[in-house]
Amino acid sequence: MIELKDVSKSFTLHNQGSAVIPVTEGASFRVAPGECVALTGASGAGKSTLMRVIYGNYLAASGQVLVGGLDVTQAEPREVLALRRETLGYVSQFLRVVPRVPTLEVVAEPLLALGRDRQVALDKAAPLLARLNIPERLWALSPTTFSGGEQQRVNIARGFAHDYPAMLLDEPTASLDVQNRETVLSLIEEAKARGAAIVGIFHDVAARERVCDREINVSEFTPGVAA
């Protein structure tokens, strides 16, 4: 479902003396449907970077990134946009929201973008919020004033609103208490059960070991590190 072939990524900071910062080189791996693969490695090793390359948020310097058969590095913008709508979900570490939009609608957004009926979308969003222990009285409010943990849970709810065949999860259990962490892990297991291919970053070892089938240490792809 997700396949990387010889992907490399570096940053060139033109306004800082054209400093070149190589991050990843020769990254190759596969994730099959129903599998959950964890990206591990020290902070700054390139885990989030690699995830963003898969999503098309960062441009790969070379190599191929195939998601559901589409090469993200070569695809037309509209193809990537369609991929993100239908196939590839991404739960980042931060919730970025439009002011004024109520939480329920934030979560329903991916379904609305797919053209689902408004009420149907809201009806799917509500139980997710309930599962993640966001009180109903908050659903009509914008999440901009919520606590970090609440925002994270809204973020996760949004990420799971649509049954994506492929998902990228960046620290989904960070800043969550035991109960909510448990809920999120269940969500991930349910996604796996329906055949989603998942790439995740988990600092929490226990969480990682619970849901992930394999680990890939991105330090293997750090340039300059001997194989």
Partner: peptide
């Protein structure tokens, strides 16, 4: 490019 790509990378 894609908005998020041009702004983030």
């Amino acid at each position: 490019g894609l908005t998020d790509q041009v702004l983030d990378d």
